[in-house]
Design a protein around this nucleic acid. Structure first.
Length: 107
DNA sequence: GAGTTGACGGGCG
DNA sequence: CCGCCCGCCAACT
């Protein structure tokens, strides 16, 4: 019954772990890869449930606009931005170039 | 049990 | 280019 939900959750976590270092992806992309093209919001829901000490690179997930889905004044924003910068991912005007850092590779 | 929310995305004006 | 609206659907109140 609720297996589909659990499966979606598991798929998201798996994909999240497959994101190579120095690359980023969007919620919609993950949802699509998970087999649910329109569940972009739920991807965020899953990430929200992640523990703070999670080994998964949740910071490599941004929105389709190539921006961090947090208010600039938010602590989460600062952390994610700092982590991305630590992976040589430098956003321009608070926007990440998906053409360069995007994953999987878009054409 | 019913209504609202949300780590989003895409379309329209 | 920018802002508003609609859709999707589980989680939350």
């Amino acid at each position: 019954m609720n297996d589909s939900r659990q499966q979606f959750n598991d798929a998201v976590l798996y994909i999240l772990g497959q994101i190579p270092k120095g690359k980023v992806t969007s919620y919609g992309k993950i949802a699509q890869l998970a087999g649910y093209p329109n569940h972009s919001r739920h991807v965020g829901q899953v990430l929200k449930h992640l523990p703070n000490d999670s080994k998964l690179p949740w910071h490599r997930v941004i929105n389709g606009q190539g921006k961090i889905s947090f208010p600039k004044d938010s602590a989460k924003y600062q952390v994610q931005s700092d982590r991305l910068k630590a992976e040589n991912i430098i956003p321009l005007n608070d926007k990440i170039n998906m053409k360069v850092y995007g994953w999987p590779q878009e054409s």
